[in-house]
Simulated assay, not measured.
Amino acid sequence: MKIFLWIVIFLATFCIMEFMAWFTHKYIMHGFLWSLHKDHHKKDHDSWFERNDAFFLFYAVVSMSLIMIGNTTDFWYGWPLGFGILAYGIAYFFVHDIFIHQRFKFLRNANNWYAKGVRRAHKMHHKHLGKTDGECFGMLFVPFKYFKK
């Protein structure tokens, strides 16, 4: 039974992270922490790293903390919570940083309907360089209007 609960918590955490990514992006990154996120929309530096990468560090610390707490206390569900956040972070990194923004030069030739829809949706978000008016959506649950045949 504990394994079943572990899997349910892990999957639920992964899915909830999609909401957290949308919420954080819309209300925090395009809100009071725009100063950290704006270099993601308009490059004003020569570095491979962006100030925007600080958001990754926040979720990494939360994930690692939950895993360590789960390992050292009776709070066993710290493991599936922490690993659910980690799994979402890895998926987000692959989709957003590698596939869409090409921070590493592979996955360039993926042209199925889902790949095209995700790229199209992200391009619509990035057409607005300022703090306001950019559409915000998750990584996995992209609005269907972007998926064309």
Rank of each mutant, 00 (worst) to 15 (best):
Y59T: 12
G117E: 07
K105R: 11
L66P: 01
K148A: 04
I67V: 10
S65V: 08
K26M: 04
M17I: 02
K2E: 05
L66C: 14
F94E: 06
D44T: 13
K42H: 15
S63Y: 05
F93S: 10
I16L: 13
G130M: 13
K148Q: 13
L129I: 10
K116D: 14
I100W: 12
H126C: 07
L140C: 11
R51P: 01
F83P: 07
R51G: 03
R51Q: 09
F55V: 09
D74G: 11
H96W: 00
F10P: 06
Y27S: 02
F23R: 01
C15N: 11
I16A: 15
H45G: 06
K38I: 07
F104V: 10
W79V: 01
G134D: 15
G70Q: 12
G117Y: 15
H126D: 07
M124H: 13
I9T: 13
F55R: 05
G84E: 12
I3W: 08
L140I: 15
D44F: 11
G31C: 04
H40I: 01
I3L: 12
D44S: 09
M1K: 14
I100E: 07
L33A: 11
R120N: 13
V61W: 09
L36S: 02
F55A: 04
C15H: 04
Y88S: 09
H126S: 03
Q102F: 01
I9E: 05
K131L: 14
L129P: 04
F147G: 01
M17H: 10
I69N: 01
S35M: 04
G31I: 03
F141P: 01
A12Q: 08
E50C: 03
R108F: 02
G130H: 12
A54H: 02
T73M: 02
R108S: 09
I67N: 00
A121I: 01
M20L: 13
G31R: 13
Y146F: 15
A115K: 11
K116N: 15
D44K: 06
D97N: 06
D97L: 00
A121V: 00
A91K: 03
F19I: 11
L81M: 15
T24S: 15
S47K: 10
S63H: 01
H125S: 01
V61N: 03
R119F: 00
W113L: 14
G82K: 03
H128S: 05
R103H: 11
S47A: 14
G138T: 08
G70S: 03
K131P: 03
L86M: 13
G84A: 02
F58K: 05
L33S: 06
W113F: 06
K123E: 15
Q102N: 10
G89C: 08
F4W: 02
I98N: 02
V142K: 10
H125R: 07
W76T: 07
W34S: 04
Y27T: 05
L140D: 01
K149N: 03
